[in-house]
Amino acid sequence: MKVVNKGLRAVAVLEACKGVVSLLVGFGLHVLAGHNMRQFAENIVSRLHLNPAGHLPSIFIHSASSLTDARMGLLAIGALVYSLIRLVEAYGLWNGLVWTEWFALLSGAIYLPFEIYEMIFHTSLLGVGAFLINIMIVGYMAHSLFSQETTDNQI
């Protein structure tokens, strides 16, 4: 096992945060299963003082009302699986396991084409921020892995 630097630890913390947030979303979906999702969405729109007939609030209410208990269960399971993947990745990065560095590089690079598409056709500050963070992580992981390989080959 190699010496773990602060950069890998920072990426590990970010991945752990994504895992914890996903876990909370999964538990939230599990708790909400069996409830009237239309009423829940209408309450949220009302608390935010939004017009329920407005474009975005009406899309939100319609989408929430179409969620069945089975879909909510599948979404909760998906969130749990995603959370486990991110937490295992965080553990591996924190402890300097090389396979998790490769996993972080590949899993981050997979999102780049979708983020670029989103920035071109639906530009938002959140999308640009996510892209910049992801490109920094992918670049850092590539640098970390490939500089390590050249060092290993020179020995």
Rank of each mutant, 00 (worst) to 15 (best):
Phe121Gln: 07
Phe121Asn: 10
His122Arg: 12
His122Leu: 07
His122Gly: 08
His122Thr: 15
Thr123Trp: 00
Thr123Val: 00
Thr123His: 02
Ser124Lys: 02
Ser124Ala: 09
Ser124Tyr: 04
Ser124Gln: 06
Leu125Ala: 14
Leu125Thr: 14
Leu125Val: 05
Leu125Ile: 11
Leu126Val: 09
Leu126Ile: 10
Leu126Asp: 04
Leu126Cys: 08
Leu126Trp: 03
Gly127Cys: 05
Gly127Gln: 00
Gly127Thr: 09
Val128His: 05
Val128Leu: 08
Val128Asn: 06
Gly129Ala: 15
Gly129Met: 15
Gly129Gln: 14
Gly129Glu: 13
Gly129Trp: 11
Gly129Ser: 15
Ala130Tyr: 05
Ala130Met: 12
Phe131Ile: 07
Phe131Pro: 00
Leu132Glu: 01
Leu132Gln: 06
Leu132Ser: 01
Ile133Arg: 02
Ile133Ser: 06
Asn134Pro: 03
Ile135Gly: 05
Ile135Glu: 02
Met136Arg: 08
Met136Glu: 10
Ile137Ser: 05
Ile137Leu: 04
Gly139Arg: 03
Gly139Trp: 01
Tyr140Ile: 14
Tyr140Phe: 15
Tyr140Trp: 06
Tyr140Met: 10
Tyr140Asp: 10
Tyr140Lys: 06
Met141Thr: 10
Met141Ala: 10
Met141Tyr: 04
Ala142Pro: 07
Ala142Trp: 03
Ala142Tyr: 07
His143Ile: 13
Ser144Glu: 09
Ser144Ile: 05
Phe146Cys: 10
Phe146Arg: 12
Phe146Met: 12
Ser147Gly: 00
Ser147Val: 06
Ser147Pro: 02
Gln148Cys: 07
Gln148Arg: 15
Gln148Phe: 02
Glu149Trp: 14
Glu149Arg: 15
Glu149Cys: 07
Glu149Pro: 03
